[in-house]
């Protein structure tokens, strides 16, 4: 190797090898960390996104006064709006038990009676679930608008089946 090149290589090599070592450790930590966390939590209940009304009623004390999610179907005929406000009250059901929910805020477009819903908030045993966030849950059914009647019945069934 010729002399003029030597300082050049000495300057760049530690830089690149440092960067490469960082890249190696970083990518291994990111991939194995994310994967490990996912596999580990898959043996716990942490990946269960919401509880059903039956689970909440059966373990009322355990579920109380902490932030949880409840999912199910908006019971038909249960939705009551307070006029002039965004406040609503409705029942979430899984076909067996139900939970009264109170919410004050903007609703997603898919929120309606007879359809899936996930509410995030706090359960006050014997009273109401105070929701701070309402998410709509879609069923796996995709049906043209001309077949709405059939679609409503089908998606209701899929949803309740999935909660069993």
């Amino acid at each position: 190797m010729t002399t003029p090149e030597t300082p050049d290589t000495q300057e760049t090599t530690p830089m690149t090898s440092n960067r490469k070592r960082w890249l190696m450790v970083g990518s291994l930590v990111a991939v194995l960390g994310a994967l490990g966390l996912l596999v580990f939590t898959s043996f716990t209940d942490a990946l269960v996104y919401f509880f059903t009304p039956t689970e909440i009623q059966d373990q009322s004390a355990k579920m109380a006064d902490r932030k949880i999610r409840i999912g199910g179907m908006v019971q038909e005929g249960s939705l009551k709006r307070t006029s002039g406000t965004l406040q609503i009250r409705f029942l979430i059901t899984d076909g067996q038990k139900d939970i009264p929910v109170f919410y004050d805020g903007v609703l997603p477009d898919l929120f309606r009676e007879g359809q899936g819903v996930v509410a995030e908030g706090v359960w006050k045993p014997g009273e109401t679930f105070i929701a701070t966030t309402i998410l709509a849950k879609h069923s796996e059914d995709y049906i043209p608008i001309e077949m709405s009647e059939e679609g409503i019945a089908k998606s209701k069934k899929s949803l309740l089946d999935s909660l069993k």
């Binding site: 477009d109 309606r112 009676e113 608008i145 709405s148 679609g151 409503i152």
Partner: peptide, 9 residues
């Protein structure tokens, strides 16, 4: 939409 409200675009 199914409940009579117009479908949003």
């Amino acid at each position: 939409m199914v409940d009579g409200t117009p479908t949003p675009d």
